[in-house]
Design a protein around this nucleic acid. Structure first.
Lengths: 333, 333
DNA sequence: TTGTATGCGTTATCAT
DNA sequence: ATGATAACGCATACAA
């Protein structure tokens, strides 16, 4: 019970225009053709409202103008923003996006990568968490935030520099004893460098620090527990905290409030990402802002780059600091 | 310079297994076949790591297991959530999603609808704003929040009931003079019924009310201006406000703060949508929550529903109220 | 420059 | 039950 294929085909156009099939194809593909012929064909196309069937095209040309985008979900605002800009960049180059939400599920990620292969996509842009992900050598792959192999370009923020920047800012803001907090994947990925960058920055600036790295899946209450242990005589030991993401920063802020400490009065807080609720909403917290738009653009550029002999293994894009109410900037005081 | 087609084809499998092409096809499509043959074919498939080429499949079968999802963007949290659940529902039925961000651009919307047609998608789920959108009769189309034609099912929240519910809640919460505020598309769509429902609820419950409907593109400061005009002797005339979306509610809250009024102390506020920053974040405001997951599920069900003689033109899903800190619930006092 | 013929990978129809 | 063969819609090498 297939629906009657009412869609006009190239043959129909040829018939209508009174020319040969090949001629129609040439007109469509911009191959030079006699002017009178071209006109007739164009009229016929318009008259029949003809559209090339990109599946037939793909079958023939091994190109489908489609790129798969793998991302855990689109509910997290950072992922959602990334998705948006990747979509935009693809569209600008006349490519379509196959959206694949993996929900952090390694098996699903692998399924998608395989599926996507049989779906003949021209490339894959992936933010994946499967440590053993097997990717087909033949389809261009660009990874976000995680180096999969030297052959696969990885685009990321300069996470190390971001961590360092956070430490420097806290130092500038007068902090002396600080903490780094996150719940993190045990997986080796770029965002993990935030901690190292932060600690390095602390050392450079003479800040004493402590780091809390919780295993993936740890409930958020662990933040509160940790902070509670660091109260001495009713005072919070830390006067500055750097969180792995804005999300954690929000949680930590809540934990502090619960314990009776004020932000940024008692403790100054810096997050990472730079997400907002709405485009014109304020930041959730003072934060290291990721250049989402540039990341998206670069991913698209690289995945569509055909013959680049040597692909760069890792590209780190510059981040910047932006105050968002959880730090005591000079202008605030 | 097409990449060498290294991917194994059905023919390769047939050769490897020493059977005919048709037999391989049958095995793959689950058509009964001799046991010894089936085994040989399955082994060959595994050995060659064969994957069916869904483009060839699509060309033949006029089905591609792909649905296009049209949405203005994925940065708005409501759209992002919707995208997420639609993606999930599609995946459950083994369908892929072609994500099309239209940026509220009618021309882009039309482009996508046309493109998508030539891309042979099996269906379109669209949240569109183009009043003159032309959709192909042959591809199933499901619209969200806007009735395009009696032939095209429209899935939506029960916006009228939602508005009414908001009025009732405000009445329950002790309000007497209330307002409805939004910046809205002049377009006829389902969310516009929120106003009518609200006003109806006000009448039922004896609330006096005023409505502010600003044209699309009006800057948000207009909210502040409106509110300022309704201050009498230092008191805000309204003791309750219902906003068209949570987004507007946040803005109105800011405007009120700017004017020196407290929420929910001086004015109680109810929004619409039920969006959150993160899944476990609190609501932005007291609000009418849309059943996003159900909407997504239903869209997918209908767009994939093959032979349904008579498609329902409009389906309204029940909404519910949830307190989010901008109202004075009994438990709060 | 224009038209013809073949093949892309599958499915479906037919004899066997 | 199995295997050969013709389409699906398009691109292209080749012949006219």
């Amino acid at each position: 019970m297939k629906r009657k294929s009412t869609a006009p085909t190239m043959k129909d156009v040829a018939l209508e225009a009174g020319v040969a099939l090949g001629t129609v194809s040439k007109v469509i593909n911009g191959v030079p053709v006699g002017d009178s012929y071209r006109r007739k064909v164009e009229e016929a196309i318009k008259k029949l409202n003809y559209q090339v069937n990109s599946y037939a095209q793909g079958l023939k040309a091994h190109r489908t103008n489609t790129v798969a985008f793998l991302v855990p979900n689109t509910t997290n605002p950072y992922f959602a923003t990334l998705t948006h800009y990747v979509n935009l960049s693809l569209m600008k180059r006349n490519y379509r996006m196959l959206l694949c939400c993996t929900d952090f599920n390694p098996a699903l990620e692998q399924d998608y990568v395989s599926m996507v292969h049989k779906n003949q996509v021209d490339g894959i842009i992936g933010m994946t968490y499967n440590p053993d992900l097997i990717v087909d050598e033949n389809t261009p792959f660009v990874s976000i935030d995680r180096c999969l192999s030297p052959q696969i370009p990885c685009i990321s923020s300069d996470n190390f520099a971001g961590g360092q920047l956070a430490a420097e800012k806290l130092a500038d803001l007068g902090c002396t004893h600080v903490a780094f907090m996150r719940i993190g994947s045990s997986l080796t990925n770029e965002p993990n460098k935030r901690k190292a960058g932060f600690e390095n920055g602390c050392l450079m600036r003479g800040l004493t620090f402590e780091s809390l790295l919780l295993d993936d899946g740890t409930p958020l209450e662990a933040f509160t527990d940790f902070l509670r242990e660091h109260v001495r005589n009713g005072r919070m030991e830390f006067d500055g905290i750097f969180c792995g993401t804005d999300y954690y920063a929000v949680q930590v802020r809540n934990s502090l409030a619960e314990l009776g400490f004020s932000v940024p009065g008692d403790v100054q807080l810096i997050g990472f990402d730079g997400v907002r609720m709405f485009p014109d909403s304020p930041l959730l917290c003072s934060t290291i802002v990721q250049p989402v738009e540039d990341i998206a653009q670069l991913c698209v550029d690289f995945v569509l780059q055909e013959g680049m002999a040597t692909k760069p293994p890792l590209i780190c894009l510059p981040v910047r600091y932006e105050a968002g109410g959880t730090t005591r900037e000079e202008t605030d005081s």
